[in-house]
Design a protein around this nucleic acid. Structure first.
Lengths: 331, 331
DNA sequence: CTGAAAGCGCTTACAG
DNA sequence: CTGAAAGCGCTTACAG
């Protein structure tokens, strides 16, 4: 495995100069730079990341924390897509990814690892619970990090998020405009900001039309198919004529409950989901839903993090990406 | 961030001794060890992995290469489950995971990275093409690696695999025993060992009963739903009374083709899949299929790799995990 | 624009 | 059982 020392020898310069070339330091004579680059190519030199990091440079490695159990990981296409978006952006930027899937049993140890591992330049964290201790700890440390999904704290947290509130509001407004009178909501878990914001969007849409929210028309789900199914069962006796589900998985569960209850979609009850997962196009009837730019969310997070690593201490990055209401047959 | 130096100072020993304690070197006096451990606890010291690795020790980081595009990554629950199994085993062993999702455009660069990054102790690679250059390169290098899915080379490669050949053979034998006369196969891509082995199992089952394989009853798929759909369409005119599909995704595609052609499953055509993905239980009719222990595959790979890192140069590890034929309604 | 030197935080012979 | 020293492969002031 070639080292910087060998490159230096072969190109008749010092290690310092080779290091400058590697790091694109402008203070190198063009000819020298060319010579060094040729040697690097020739012997296929790649700087050792561990050494680089240790010496105070960048390892060019990002950490990614995905704190969900198996069930959601493979139930919900959100995560593969997100991981894909992140990986893709990292590849494009010559960065590697270190993945932590948080399992509750190991969470404490994981927190320790992530900080002190000394191996990563920054961290991306997806869908944390609002009061997750990891975020608290991170805010006290000095490792740059970007959240996927905004964090409600006042601190200078950096995040990238879909515009959950406004998309939910738009979706519900759409139902209202189409003449629906009793629009119900199946909310996501209120321990996650996405759950909170989507419900808030629902309420905002009602408020805008001076409608009062009916507690009987709001049922709690947990973003899963099963949760949506049960929530819909709870809702049906109260005769909604539309349901806004905070996730497609829950919408699909609701669809099942409605079918079982003999309720026609969209004739009796219009149904709108959130996410636009692949199955959404293949339900019966196909689901009208809010499309999140999941991969772009991941890519944008990587870019924000790179930015943050390169210019720390600048103003917090808080990026909100727009969504799109995909109208199919269910509403 | 505490360093080994501080631990040494606080416990009144040298850095060497602290290092020995960290690395469970038996040559440390019990009292000293206790004292050092107490200090480590007290200041929450975690050794810097980059430094450790650089100094010749272990970073306690494994690399994971998953060379598939988005489509398969989120179409196929195989990968999330595998990643989960690997992560889980790593957590249990205090190891971190570095993930590379190989995108074709970056594959060459990725290969370079993986070797020379100097950041990982070993590598797990899943579902490589048979002639993938990464494996060639890896065999020449000196980074310990374990394949998920066997490699047909003669070299001393280490792998963990499901028993694809025998499971496929058993599945087909099951169809034959139930009196099916014209058992067709939808094969996986023949550029992957799993595709190869499962087809080989099909052929072996026929051979065992002294039946000749009919080329018209073998159609090529690519492990996707679409591929299975098209393969089945190709098969139907040749009147099979059973189909063995090399993956559930393909079986689901075949089911759709059969339904569209008005062919009844299992009455007219019995259908067996492979994988036992979650949807398999919810098709109409529910799918009889071969269940792979995907998570265990991942966990076993981690253990084999740890083993390999700790005792390099020992005999190659080639572990084949048994599967299970899950009988539902389709055959 | 370039090089010599110190240092990042560890591990590992070596000597005792 | 323990410590002093060298070294892993880089980066980064510092001096020129």
């Amino acid at each position: 495995m070639p080292t910087i020392e060998e490159v230096a020898k072969l190109s008749h310069v010092s290690r310092s100069t080779v290091s400058r070339v590697i790091n694109d330091d402008p203070n190198v004579n063009a000819g020298t730079r060319q010579r060094v680059k040729t040697v690097i190519q020739a012997i296929n030199f790649q700087p050792n990341r561990a050494a680089r990091r240790l010496a105070g440079g960048r390892a060019r490695v990002l950490g990614l924390v995905v704190p969900v159990g198996v069930v959601r990981l493979f139930t919900d296409p959100y995560f593969p897509l997100l991981i894909q978006g992140i990986t893709s952006a990292c590849n494009a930027n010559d960065l590697s990814v270190m993945l932590w899937l948080a399992e509750p049993e190991y969470e404490r140890r994981m927190i320790g690892q992530i900080f002190q591992i000394g191996l990563i330049d920054g961290l991306i964290i997806s869908s944390m619970l609002i009061d997750d201790p990891v975020i608290q700890a991170l805010m006290c440390g000095n490792l740059p990090f970007v959240l996927i999904g905004r964090h409600p704290s006042d601190g200078p947290t950096n995040y990238v998020d879909a515009d959950n509130l406004n998309s939910a509001k738009d979706a519900v407004t759409y139902l209202l405009r189409r003449g629906r009178q009793r629009v119900a909501a199946i909310s996501g878990p209120q321990t996650m900001v996405a759950g909170l914001d989507r419900l808030e969007g629902y309420l905002a849409a009602l408020r805008e039309r001076a409608l009062t929210a009916d507690p009987d028309l709001i049922a709690n789900g947990d973003f899963t198919e099963k949760g949506g199914y049960e929530a819909a069962q709870q809702l049906i006796p109260h005769k909604p004529d539309a349901i806004f589900a905070s996730s497609d998985a829950m919408a699909i569960g609701a669809l099942r409950a409605l079918r079982e209850a003999g309720v026609k979609v969209p004739d009796d009850v219009a149904l709108v989901g959130f996410d636009d997962i692949p199955q959404a196009a293949h339900t019966e009837p196909p689901l009208t839903t809010v499309r999140q730019p999941i991969q772009r969310l991941g890519g944008t997070a990587v870019e924000a993090l790179i930015d943050l690593i390169e210019s720390p201490g600048s103003t917090p990055r808080r990026i909100v990406l727009p969504t799109e209401l995909v109208i199919r047959a269910s509403a």
